[in-house]
Design a protein around this nucleic acid. Structure first.
Length: 488
RNA sequence: GGUCCCGUGGCCGAGCGGUUAGGCAGUGGUCUGCAAAACCAUCUACAGCGGUUCGAAUCCGCUCGGGACCUCCA
């Protein structure tokens, strides 16, 4: 298909509007997404961001770009709070559970990967860890100090935000002015090491009993949270790269700090297109670990939670998320998920029937136009809800062809099948997790349906209903139609 | 308090100045031994009040309500 990939528009947080996407190097895209801090199981809200950017990655690939997708694992440096004695999240967890910090990291990294796999997310090309890039981070700190934008204080190194702001614009991404920030800030205890209230640690001194620490020019310590992303994105994607993604809540201060660090070290704006996914809400409030308003993916899949009436398949959850735009908040309710579940199954049923459609010399609808509507939706800042609406329009057409009210040519049938599969399975990253895929069950079911058919022909309703109701009780639905029976 | 976003029919959710979004539910039909499933058709909107415009869900102002960030968060 020669649908022009040059028509892709992306909402750039830096400019506050949709702009045409032009990669730095023609045909190649550098994509960096802030990954999880592995001190806990990922909750569903975290997952939404990664699923959104998985979709972005997939669509860029589909457009033919060679994408280098980097998503980090934060395994050190993420502090519980911003005071001088702010504790490392991983270390705190290790202390509470009385295990090694790296055991914490290992445990939750594995959990994260499992969940990403459940949601059918593609792996990034590179998944770097903060602890694996200590040298790069130390080097970046040295450069920032040399350039005069950071200072050492009592074994820690802080980024001098006010000094930076005199030369550059701190706050350009989040639309903040440093004067407003200062006048509105509340006094935090224990910030004596910092020159300014918004200075942030790029290196933290470690006490003697601290387990996770490395030797540096400033003594033993560990790197600050914001720094890892700058160091690793620079290392793998260069001083300037195309797309940086993350959750809305990272916009300030995390991403703001990333820009400042990069500018302070090499004078270049690191990122062309900043993309921010919106929050998931539960009971109308942001899903968040810190306010105890969250649900774990596993709890959603198993049904063991206080929020939902029943379990939901990961693909249903993914489909539900794709029915909302990535920049909109999405409210999770049992009712809404159930609605998505029905719609999703209907979609799968129809797509499985395309190849059996009767063909004609001509098509009564322009399949090309339908396919174009898929691309138009995605090119408009990855508008997946509109894409899905357009796919449902195609479903209506397919059913009309099946009924005989509309026609489709053999080549169009092939095209429609390919494009619908591509968008549904490849771009949106869904998959058909039906029982049908279990090969051994299929012949057994054929046999049962045959027996029931014979009973029905003999008007032996007792036997036929026994088969139907028995199957229903174990979750298999018999679907009778003119052309015989099938199951789901 | 500061900065910003949002308020769409029973529920979810698109829409970015003029044409049916879409899904689920509801209603009516087709099909059927009964049913289920499937399919078709179809009803409920744009928080309120002003303004701009030939024309506003869409732009502007105010009011009310909700949310995010400003402190760790995807």
């Amino acid at each position: 298909m020669n649908f022009n990939k040059k028509q892709l528009t992306i909402y750039n947080s830096l400019e506050g509007k949709k702009v045409l996407f032009n990669p730095i190097k023609d045909g190649f895209v550098g994509l960096y997404v802030c990954g999880p801090t592995v001190y806990n199981k990922v909750h569903l809200g975290n997952c939404r961001t990664f699923i959104s950017f998985d979709m972005v990655y997939r669509y860029l690939l589909h457009l033919g770009y060679k994408v280098r997708y980097v998503r980090n694992i934060t395994d050190v440096g993420h502090l519980v709070d911003d005071s001088d004695q702010g504790e490392d999240k991983i270390l705190k967890k290790a202390r509470l559970e009385k295990i090694e910090p790296m055991e914490v990291v290992q445990q939750y990294t594995l959990d994260f990967h499992k969940v990403m796999n459940d949601f059918n997310c593609l792996s990034p090309n590179i998944e770097p860890t903060a602890t694996g890039h200590i040298m790069e981070q130390i080097e970046m700190i040295r450069v920032i100090i040399d350039n005069g934008f950071a200072y050492e204080s009592n074994g820690s190194v802080y980024f001098d935000v006010e000094k930076y702001n005199r030369k550059q614009n701190y706050g350009e991404l989040s639309g903040r002015k440093i004067e407003d920030l200062i006048s509105n800030t509340r006094e935090l205890d224990g910030q004596t090491e910092k020159r300014g209230p918004f200075d942030f640690a790029i290196w933290k001194k470690a006490s003697s009993e601290h387990i996770m620490k490395w030797r540096s020019p400033w003594g033993f310590g560990f790197p600050g949270w914001h720094l890892e992303c700058s160091a690793m994105s620079t290392k793998y994607l260069g001083d300037e790269f195309d797309i940086h993604g993350g959750g809305m809540d990272l916009k300030f201060p995390h991403h703001e700090c990333e820009i400042a660090q990069a500018m302070a070290s090499n004078g270049k704006k690191p990122v062309r297109y900043w993309m921010h996914g919106n929050m998931l809400t539960l009971n109308g409030k942001k899903m968040s670990k810190s306010i105890d308003n969250s649900i774990l993916p596993g709890e959603l899949f198993s049904g063991e939670n206080d929020f939902m009436d029943k379990p939901f398949d990961p693909m249903v959850v993914r489909f539900f998320m794709m029915q909302a735009h990535y920049r909109s908040t999405l409210d999770f309710t049992s009712e809404a998920l159930s609605a998505a579940e029905k719609g999703y199954h209907r979609l799968l049923n129809t797509i499985n029937e395309i190849e059996n459609l009767p063909t004609n010399v001509d098509s009564s609808e322009s399949v090309l136009k339908i396919v174009k509507s898929f691309y138009d939706a995605m090119n408009d800042d990855f508008n997946t809800p509109v894409l899905i609406a357009n796919i449902f329009e195609a479903v209506k057409y397919i059913n009309s062809v099946k009924k005989g009210d509309e026609t489709i040519s053999s080549s169009d049938r092939q095209l429609l099948k390919e494009e619908m599969s591509t968008f549904l399975f490849y771009v949106l990253g869904l998959k058909d997790s039906n029982l049908k895929s279990e090969d051994r069950l299929s012949p057994v079911m054929d046999l049962l349906l045959q027996l029931r058919e014979e009973a029905r022909n003999n008007k032996d309703w007792k036997t036929s209903d026994k088969i139907r109701d028995g199957l229903a009780s174990i979750g298999i639905t018999i679907k009778d139609s003119k052309n015989g029976s099938s199951w789901d």
